[in-house]
Lab assay of single mutants.
Amino acid sequence: DEDSERELEKLRKNNASKEEIKEVLKRLGFSEDEAKKLAEKAG
Rank of each mutant, 00 (worst) to 15 (best):
D1Y: 12
R6V: 09
K41L: 14
K41V: 14
S4F: 15
R12G: 05
G29D: 02
E23C: 12
E32F: 03
E40I: 04
E20D: 07
L25R: 00
E23D: 09
F30H: 03
E20K: 09
F30E: 01
G43K: 10
A35H: 01
E40Y: 05
A39H: 01
L25E: 01
L11D: 02
E2N: 11
D33I: 10
K22G: 03
S31I: 02
K13C: 15
K13Q: 11
R27Q: 12
K10A: 10
E5V: 11
A16E: 01
L11I: 03
L25W: 00
A35D: 01
E7K: 06
K37Q: 10
K37G: 08
K22P: 00
G43F: 15
V24H: 13
A39V: 10
E34A: 08
E40G: 04
E23R: 06
L8P: 01
R27N: 12
N15A: 07
N14A: 09
E23H: 04
K10R: 14
K18W: 15
E2Y: 13
E7W: 14
E23T: 03
N15G: 14
K13N: 10
D33W: 06
L25S: 01
E20T: 07
S4H: 12
G43R: 04
G29W: 01
K36H: 13
S31F: 02
I21D: 01
E32K: 01
L8G: 01
E7D: 04
K36V: 11
E32N: 03
K22Q: 12
L38N: 02
K26R: 09
E7N: 02
K36W: 11
N15I: 02
S31L: 04
R6L: 09
E9K: 05
E7I: 15
L38I: 13
K41A: 14
A39P: 01
K13G: 09
S31A: 05
E19S: 06
L38G: 03
K18F: 15
E34M: 07
G43T: 13
E9M: 04
I21Q: 02
A39D: 01
E23P: 00
E20I: 07
K10E: 13
G43Y: 15
K13A: 12
F30M: 07
R6H: 09
E2T: 12
E23N: 08
E40F: 05
K41P: 08
E40V: 04
E9H: 06
G43V: 15
G29A: 00
K10I: 13
A16F: 07
L8S: 01
R12L: 14
A35P: 01
K10N: 12
R12Y: 14
D33R: 06
S31K: 03
S17I: 03
R12Q: 08
E2V: 13
D3T: 12
E7Y: 10
E23I: 03
R27H: 08
E5G: 07
L25G: 00
R12P: 02
K13L: 11
R27L: 14
E9L: 06
I21Y: 06
S4V: 15
N15Q: 09
L8I: 11
L8W: 05
E9W: 02
K26I: 15
A16D: 02
R6A: 10
L8D: 01
N14R: 11
E9F: 01
E19D: 10
E40N: 07
K13P: 04
K13T: 07
K18P: 13
E34P: 00
A35V: 07
E9Q: 09
K37A: 13
E40C: 04
E2G: 10
G29I: 00
K18Q: 12
K18L: 14
A39M: 13
S31T: 11
E2I: 13
